[in-house]
Amino acid sequence: HAATELTPEQAAALKPYDRIVITGRFNAIGDAVSAVSRRADEEGAASFYVVDTSEFGNSGNWRVVADVYKA
């Protein structure tokens, strides 16, 4: 099962156990969220919340930071 994305309210009520950072070329924010979901799932997380997204220069590469939560 894939890790689910939390709302800001849900994330605020929970304590993350880790923070992950992924970088890559994403065509849309949805693609980045899917990549975070896969990584969170690999780490055994039940859910995640994207904290920050930023573009690296003009290369089209993105850096996505997310907190991950157990259950």
Rank of each mutant, 00 (worst) to 15 (best):
A2N: 12
E5N: 07
G44R: 04
V51S: 02
L6Q: 03
A46S: 12
G30L: 11
T4S: 10
V51T: 06
I29E: 07
R63Q: 11
V68H: 00
F48V: 05
D41P: 00
L6C: 05
V65I: 12
A3K: 03
P8L: 12
Y69F: 11
A3E: 01
R39D: 03
R63P: 00
A66S: 02
K15T: 13
D67G: 02
R63T: 12
E55K: 11
P8Q: 13
E42R: 09
S47C: 14
A32M: 14
Y17G: 01
D31R: 01
E9F: 09
V36S: 02
A2Q: 13
D18P: 00
E42D: 09
G57F: 07
I20D: 00
G24V: 07
Y69H: 02
I29P: 11
A13R: 14
A45M: 09
A32H: 00
R63V: 13
R38V: 12
P8C: 13
P16M: 03
V68T: 02
G30W: 12
R63S: 07
A40F: 03
D31A: 06
V21Y: 09
F48Q: 00
A66L: 06
N27I: 09
L6T: 02
V51W: 03
A71R: 09
V33A: 04
G30I: 12
A45C: 11
I22T: 00
L14G: 05
K70M: 11
A2P: 10
N27K: 10
S54H: 14
E42K: 09
G57S: 09
K15W: 08
E42L: 12
V65G: 03
G30T: 13
G24H: 04
F56L: 13
D31C: 08
S34T: 12
A45N: 02
Y69W: 00
N61W: 15
F48W: 04
N27D: 11
N27R: 09
T4R: 13
N27H: 11
L14E: 04
T53H: 11
Y69N: 00
F26D: 01
R19I: 07
K15S: 08
A3F: 05
F48K: 02
V64A: 01
S54F: 15
G24W: 04
A40D: 03
F48N: 00
F56C: 12
N58Y: 10
R63I: 14
D67E: 08
R39K: 12
A2T: 13
I20H: 01
A35V: 06
S34H: 13
A32K: 02
V21L: 03
N58V: 11
S54R: 13
A45E: 01
R25Y: 13
R25D: 06
Q10I: 06
D31T: 05
P16E: 02
A45F: 15
